[in-house]
Measured scan of single mutants.
Amino acid sequence: HNLTITQGKLFFHYNPKLCLSEIHKMEEVSGTKGRQERNDIALKTNGDQASCENELLKFSYIRTSFDKILLRWEPYWPPDFRDLLGFMLFYKEAPYQNVTEFDGQDACGSNSWTVVDIDPPLRSNDPKSQNHPGWLMRGLKPWTQYAIFVKTLVTFSDERRTYGAKSDIIYVQTDATNPSVPLDPISVSNSSSQIILKWKPPSDPNGNITHYLVFWERQAEDSELFELDYCLKGLKLPSRTWSPPFESEDSQKHNQSEYEDSAGECCSCPKTDSQILKELEESSFRKTFEDYLHNVVFVPRKTSSGTGAEDPRPSRKRRSLGDVGNVTVAVPTVAAFPNTSSTSVPTSPEEHRPFEKVVNKESLVISGLRHFTGYRIELQACNQDTPEERCSVAAYVSARTMPEAKADDIVGPVTHEIFENNVVHLMWQEPKEPNGLIVLYEVSYRRYGDEELHLCVSRKHFALERGCRLRGLSPGNYSVRIRATSLAGNGSWTEPTYFYVTDYLDVPSNIA
């Protein structure tokens, strides 16, 4: 807008934040220059609390790290170098490059900038070799853009010569660093050979998330399962459950009422301010606690030095998902009996873990797994792929695949051998790939016309006998059925096997 004052003059007093240069501009645009008398524009009460600059400061050096910015700028000295009290560095987070010096300023003089007072450097006698002032900004957020400017702080001049310097606002972004852990990993099994893994992005990506790394490792069953005799009275049979499938998407929606109208769909109840505040506090606490764990609990591995020492970490090797089922080394339970199943799973520490690289999504279907087997899954978020990966501390989750139908069934015939004193040795093959492992066998036998009897055969007993022995049988026709019990439950009964026990007292003698 054009402003013209045809008559009258300007009068400025007691404006401590208004620089004289701005008042002189007002004289020019209003056409009143030359009308004012000496005392109409006070030299001592206008701009006496402001830094009124008329020179431009330029930054000469900028260096960044993930949490620091090192700045240096060209030296500046007023005509009387004693008038320079120091520099004021202003900075704040700036997602967009549209910041002005006066953003967030209120009537009390406060604003949204963080201000650092910096002492002037030592003055050199040689004007050509003056030290460049600077400042190291610490405690910054990774991968965050900051708006920065600097200006001088000078003393009051009796001659009211307006001098000083100020830089333009520059924008500097800190470097990326390792992201925080992925949030809320959930693993479920939808079949006997697959596990579905879902997660949420890290709360602090500290860069642009480029991919996720998912490692999985087959877990050995508890050692007590191999040692305890679950045929003993009072000892509860062990059981394991597989990871249940995901709930429906509708039930997972946030901010939804727990109660549904019987007449149909209901609208979600909005969260109160107290609920939102509580969630923010919980989120802040979780982030602080995660940072504490990362800094205190997890110790970084030592990389190899120039002395030739090897990095103890196993090298990563990509495998196809079809090879995942046989990740671990199978060892027989008892070496003397080769027909026992290889369900003991000690994992070799030198073995390469299978892994998958996930790009542009937060889910993965891990296939080719062994049925009813526990897996430990390790999830890392990465925001750099080359020249070397920059990934987060791992988040861990466990899951067990679903049982395989008929995996616990005894394959092959049940054979028998009759000894003296009416002892019958029953023999059968253990299931080759049971659900988890076989903890015991149930032997059901009966003599024709009598009630059915049951015998429990422990895992250890089966390994020693290759089956079991029935003792003290009365003469007669017998039928026997056997079924295995694994961590997933009972298998199917075998087809009945028949044998006849004679009275050993009636056996004919070869003595003449």
Rank of each mutant, 00 (worst) to 15 (best):
V414W: 01
E404N: 09
C231T: 04
G489W: 06
S248Q: 15
R218A: 06
I209P: 12
P270M: 14
S444R: 05
D291A: 10
R376K: 13
S479L: 03
G322E: 08
E442I: 07
I209N: 09
N339L: 09
E224L: 05
G264L: 14
D222F: 14
N435P: 01
K432N: 07
K287I: 07
G489N: 14
K361R: 05
N339Q: 10
F355S: 10
L228S: 11
D385I: 12
R286A: 14
S239L: 13
R301S: 05
E247W: 07
S474W: 09
T241S: 06
S341W: 13
N477D: 07
R286N: 03
K406S: 10
C269Q: 04
Y500K: 12
V439A: 13
Q275C: 07
F285T: 04
Q252Y: 08
E265N: 11
K460P: 10
L232A: 10
L235R: 09
R447H: 05
D250K: 10
D222Q: 03
D503E: 07
S341L: 11
F289I: 10
R466S: 13
G449K: 07
Y504L: 13
L280R: 12
H211Y: 13
L235Y: 07
V501A: 04
Q384S: 13
H425M: 07
S243V: 08
E465Q: 15
T401K: 00
K432T: 12
S392P: 04
K317E: 08
S239P: 10
E451F: 12
S239F: 06
H371C: 09
N490S: 14
R466D: 11
H416E: 04
K236E: 13
A336R: 08
R483L: 02
V327G: 08
T485L: 14
N477A: 06
C391Q: 02
K236V: 11
F289N: 08
E433W: 12
S342E: 06
L225A: 08
N383L: 08
L321A: 12
T210K: 15
A407S: 10
A330K: 15
L379M: 08
L464H: 14
F215G: 14
T333L: 06
H211C: 01
I276R: 05
S492Y: 02
A381T: 12
E378H: 14
V297L: 08
H416C: 09
I410L: 10
P354Q: 12
L280F: 13
G412W: 04
V296Q: 11
G476N: 01
E452K: 07
P314Y: 14
D291M: 14
Y396Q: 06
R390H: 03
S268W: 04
V424Q: 02
I410V: 15
C456G: 01
W216M: 15
L453G: 09
E265T: 13
S243Y: 06
N383G: 03
E430V: 09
T497W: 10
T494K: 02
G368S: 09
S262V: 12
G325W: 14
A263T: 07
P349L: 08
N206F: 12
Y259R: 09
K302H: 14
D503F: 03
P245H: 10
N477L: 06
H416S: 12
L321P: 10
V299R: 15
V457W: 04
L232P: 12
E290Y: 04
V297C: 04
P508K: 07
S392Y: 02
R469N: 11
